[in-house]
Design a protein around this nucleic acid. Structure first.
Lengths: 239, 239
DNA sequence: CCCCTTAATAGTCACTCAGACTATAAAAGG
DNA sequence: CCTTTTATAGTCTGAGTGACTATTAAGGGG
């Protein structure tokens, strides 16, 4: 009701937490930092930090992303607000409300330790053991969201370098979904969606692979997929 | 980075804001309250309020929903976190971070004034003039989200009373999307989706209407729609 | 150098589903 | 009784997708 004068209100600490994903060696990895202090000292956690007085949660998230990854330019990276976690007991010391974000990186740069000297590391999603605070849940929520958005958006290109092959794009889907897709059908679908990808004219090849060299593509201008690219139905999927 | 001891952090006020939707006379309505105090005194705004020290944002949202609508039991209503708005200047007085929610009500109960004696009113979405703070944006975001979720979830039943006809369900889609759907095709789609709706055995009729009485249905157990029920494409929809 | 492997790309076929209809059934009103 | 109104049933067609098979263009090993 926004009647500040009439209501006492509790001040809260507000933080951002980041679930930063990348693809490495065909597996989904997430950026984790090791906590140096109590509580949860020695445990791994999602990178994050406090909002500064003059920045929005989005600004803070992008700042933290730059700090943790060591990337100088994070302006083009995909960063999206997930949701806010505000359970009263999520931090044992005090009341902390955290705005969680999911970020996607194409090429995995080596992380550097954050300013608090904690160690940072890319960790396979499946072995991201029990994390500090409620970060297990945040991470799971982030993965769910990313997987779902692959179906009806062009988000997959955010995992890819500026120029990529359709095989690499397909690997994004297969890795995040944990499924195998039919290659000709995937091609047909991607190429039939206007604005999803656009061919690089000088049809170049790629890495010194074995078979026929693949054509290169760039991310197109479209952001939504109509109709969507639904993942193979592992039977009636709940919500 | 959660190193509280090493970082000064600003305390923030944390609020929840609610975009509460219902269908009334074939039009989408939203619950608004009139502000009694500066800033934006006399302007309409989304209902909301401060988090209490011991409650999560979800709990606070449900409490506010009950207070503003006067409903005694809001446990079954659809309430979903939208996103968090944290621009530093969104409140001219102080730093306020607001967690926004979208709520869906089936039958429109008359709202009662909130505890701060502000007036509350159901307002047609299209005439929800300029609101206080950044509530125009929150409201628009909420509407976009609801419209999108109708496509791939069973959310539409949240707008309907416990028992409803397929015509009423169709009206939900038509009203929220602002489109007209083909009735036989809509029926076919809804009935072919397992768990979307289930027929009420004593196939009762409804209001003293004119034509053939319609069968009644209840919301099913499913929450997701596979495949989705896509809205008629008004040409290449961006994101 | 030829053949085999590997991977990309092209094309086929059948089935499902959605859009656009037409037809029938069951009520109310004159 | 006939018309209007609304619900429900059914038909036809084209787009899109899953499951395949075929071809092309590379590399590697004898």
């Amino acid at each position: 009701m926004h009647g500040y004068d009439k209501y006492a209100f509790e001040p809260f600490a507000v933080t951002v937490d980041l679930a930063v994903f990348t693809l490495r060696a065909g597996a989904l990895h997430v950026l984790l930092v090791e906590r140096a202090q109590e509580p949860y000292a020695g445990r791994w956690a999602l990178p994050g930090g406090f909002l500064l007085p003059t920045e929005s949660a989005e600004t803070a998230a992008r700042r933290e992303l730059a700090e943790e990854t060591g990337l100088t330019d994070v302006s083009g990276l995909h960063l999206e607000q997930l949701r806010t976690y505000s359970e009263p007991d999520r931090d044992p010391r005090m009341r902390v409300v955290s705005v969680a974000f999911a970020a996607l990186l194409p090429d995995p740069p080596e992380p550097r330790a954050g300013t608090d000297a904690a160690e940072a590391r890319w960790t396979p999603y499946d072995t991201a053991g029990p994390l500090a605070f409620d970060h297990d849940r945040i991470l799971a929520d982030a993965r769910t969201r990313i997987g779902a958005k692959l179906e009806y958006t062009c988000l997959a290109t955010a995992f890819c370098p500026p120029e990529f092959t359709l095989g690499e794009l397909q690997q994004v889907y297969e890795t995040v979904w944990g499924t195998v897709l039919d290659r000709p059908n995937f091609r047909r679908k991607v190429l039939a969606t206007p604005g999803f990808v656009e061919a690089v004219p000088g049809a170049a090849r790629l890495t010194g692979g074995r078979g026929k060299p693949a054509a290169l593509y760039r991310a197109g201008t479209a952001t939504a997929l109509h109709p969507p690219l639904l993942r193979p139905t592992p039977e009636g999927r709940p919500a």
